[in-house]
Amino acid sequence: MRSLLKQIYRYTHPRAYRHNENLWPYLKIERAITGEIITFSYKGLQVPIIELSSLKNSCSGSLLLVATGPSINQIDFSCIPSLAVMGVNGAYHLNYVLNFTHYVIVDMTFIDDRKEVVTDIISNASLTLFTTAYGIIKLIQIFGWEKVQCRLALIEDAAFKIYQHKIVHSDLSTIPSVHFHHNLSNIAFNTDIRSGVIDSGTVAYWAMQIAYYLGYEQLFIAGLDMTNFNLPRFYETSNDVLPSRLAESLDSKIIPSFELAARLFNEKNINIVNISENSAIDDAIFKKINYRQAFSLGSD
């Protein structure tokens, strides 16, 4: 039946709508006038989601954004002052020492391959999980809706919005909140996630657009190594490493994207500190400081 429905969808919709073929007719949505999805129903199950408009500039102060590079193991998080924490993918392994308030998962293979950590994430009722429509559906299919205790904030790739046609990168300029790299027309950043998030090949870039929208005034980034891609992530072992494709797009997409993000955060007077001292992201983009110095902890 599923194959038949997919064929019907392909026959009745132009190719630009192909990214919706696995959602139709199971998913029903409604959008606000500002563009974001505000109601979400999958196979008759009404899933409560946070309206993104309610989150705009809802936060202040400092945010610790935790990625998953090996350098995480060089940081003693137990001595870092209490602050809001946003994690991505496997960063939740630090839950014993960090109080995660926001989380971002947009890689569906992570949900498939790291079910044990996703179980812990969705069990946290005080956490807001930002994920896509496909992410919400996977949570329902794999874990069951009754296991999802966290709050859900639905985000979309700006180029592949649900039940809308694919937008080629050059046409993203029609979205007022989308800003482009000064030299590269294929690199963009959206300051209003209600109209979608721009993908650059790394979930950390999604997280930065979310952090900008939430209104944080200072951003500390940990684990943004973007180097030694052959090494296990901080929570992996050599026998349990998921593949990474970051190296393929590091120079062409990821670094220019962070250059653009740095400019936009700077224009808003938001300070960014990269506490991964050996990060491949140049100091001219995000200032690199030892974590003890960044948090005024004194010497070891």
Results as ranks from 00 to 15, higher is better:
R2W: 13
Q7L: 15
I8S: 07
T12E: 11
H13T: 07
R15N: 08
A16M: 10
Y17H: 11
H19E: 08
N20L: 06
N20E: 07
P25S: 11
I29M: 11
E30C: 11
I38T: 15
T39K: 08
G44D: 07
G44Y: 12
P48C: 12
P48I: 12
I49R: 14
S54W: 12
S58A: 13
S62G: 09
S62N: 09
P70C: 09
D76M: 04
L83K: 12
L83I: 14
A84N: 14
V85E: 01
M86A: 04
L94N: 01
N99C: 10
Y103A: 00
V104R: 02
V104W: 00
V106H: 01
D107W: 05
M108R: 14
F110R: 06
F110W: 10
I111K: 04
D120W: 12
D120Q: 15
I121V: 11
A125Y: 12
L127S: 04
T132Y: 05
Y134W: 13
K138T: 00
L139W: 06
L139T: 00
I142V: 13
G144R: 12
V148M: 08
D157H: 08
D157C: 08
A158N: 01
A159Q: 11
K161S: 00
Q164K: 13
I167F: 02
H169N: 07
L172M: 09
L172R: 04
S173I: 11
T174A: 13
I175V: 08
S177V: 04
H182M: 10
H182E: 12
S185A: 12
S185E: 11
N190A: 06
D192I: 05
D192Y: 04
R194H: 04
I198S: 03
D199H: 04
Y205N: 00
Y205T: 00
Y213E: 03
G215M: 07
A222I: 02
D225I: 02
N228T: 06
F234E: 00
L242F: 15
L246D: 07
L246T: 08
E248V: 10
D251V: 07
D251P: 03
I254T: 00
P256E: 03
E259A: 02
A261W: 02
A262N: 06
L264E: 07
N266H: 13
I270K: 06
S276H: 01
E277Q: 11
D283C: 08
A284L: 14
A284K: 15
K288I: 03
I289C: 02
G298M: 09
